[in-house]
Design a protein around this nucleic acid. Structure first.
Lengths: 227, 227
DNA sequence: TGACGATTCAAGCGTACGCTTGAATGCTCG
DNA sequence: CGAGCATTCAAGCGTACGCTTGAATCGTCA
């Protein structure tokens, strides 16, 4: 017996599973993660994910079919981007769930960060509070392009490989909160290491722009910073 | 070239995709949804999802491998339940994302609710506010067992099929907010219809217990209600 | 202890998926 | 208008998945 109720439920769950399916392949998760840092061309994404362009294109189309990303022609390139802030929110929820439920994630992360003078994060929310209140200098160590695509308001952009040479742009007497792409990104760890060696008080902020956006807070872009 | 960084990323994304895979099959999404109403035995879940026991068991083990649910022997039965509140939160995020991104969800839902005197919900957050402040009578029309497993604090339990006979338990001079399992559940719609016919001021609350839990609010259980 | 019942295991089948390769499409710019 | 390049399409291969069926396991209760 196929009741109309059953039919309705089947349709709804099928739709929800569409989103699940989109997140079922590691490479798609990776693409989504990179898109969280800003719009990208297919070629750039393929490079970042370490795969062929055709393969990346294929995955991007799956993500697009699930309405998680949008494509847009821009010059000779096709630029992909997350479809909405909801997607950031959802992705952060996925990361958080996996982080708290799957012991493997923590193990792998600890092993990787161990060789890099792990900072063991200063109680995340406490630091975030200070950042929001403007009590610390916020340092964005990602490549300038990602900073331009979106950054935490009032953050200073110094890519990690230029940090040593541009230290004088950071006031010595203020605490520094460095961030990069998110909890699994090591650039901020390296930055903090360097800053401390140079006598700064510095902490690593685990959250990146997607986390910031997921909380519903304003994200600044290059255009408005230029005003 | 396989850098250690690449290796690390591959592992992380593989773990995240484990969760994605768990949500990639419609039937598993359905099981998860039902578990959001409270613990269930394999047989009960199979019945609810309209499938065989062996099939349900199989899916439940996939969910368990992804640490989304936990199994526990209870009498002659194995009782499954969501592994943590994170899971509710995540599931609600999934539903919300699918609802806002996939036009199909809205279409299907509208078509289904149309035949049932759709209520078009009274601006959800506004109603929730009144519920939280105790300004309305909260009515839980789910089966008593689900109410016992967890309900919105101060809610009154009257299963929808007993409502007509037990109307006198509801004060006439107070507005009623009826809820059931969530946004795709029709029981509350029917209840509101009946209540209005009988002269009550009644609204349907789209949110169910999982939504309530996802927001981090307290969920009451039968045991404490008995004090 | 023994029997029953709830659940899980195991095997088999058809389909869908992810990846690779090579060709085709469609813009853009000269 | 045509060349060149970014992207997509299409086909083929191997694997994994979801579902079904029938047997095995495990715990419980008489």
């Amino acid at each position: 017996m196929t009741t109309p109720h059953r039919l309705f439920k089947d349709r709804i769950y099928e739709q929800l599973a569409r989103v699940g399916k989109a997140l079922a392949a590691p490479r798609r998760v990776e693409l989504l993660d990179h898109l969280g840092q800003g719009p990208r061309t297919v070629e750039a994404l393929a490079e970042l994910a370490g795969t062929s362009v055709a393969n990346a294109s294929q995955h991007l189309q799956v993500l697009r079919a699930a309405r998680l990303v949008e494509a847009r022609k821009r010059g000779p390139y096709v630029e992909y981007r997350l479809a909405a802030d909801d997607v950031s929110r959802f992705f952060v929820a996925l990361r958080s769930l996996a982080g708290s439920r799957l012991a493997e994630v923590e193990q792998v992360t600890r092993a990787y960060f161990a060789g890099r003078g792990g900072d063991e994060a200063v109680g995340g929310d406490e630091l975030i509070g200070r950042v929001r209140r403007g009590e610390v200098t916020v340092l964005d160590v990602r490549p300038a392009e990602e900073f331009r695509a979106g950054h935490i308001p009032r953050a200073v952009s110094i890519p990690v490989d230029e940090l040593k040479a541009r230290l004088k742009e950071l006031p010595r007497d203020r605490e520094v909160a460095a961030y990069c792409r998110g909890p699994y990104c090591v650039m901020a760890v390296e930055a903090v290491e360097l800053l401390r060696k140079k006598g700064y008080t510095a902490h690593r902020m685990e959250q990146g722009v997607p986390d910031w956006r997921a909380r519903g807070w304003r994200v600044a872009t290059a255009r408005e910073a230029a005003r």
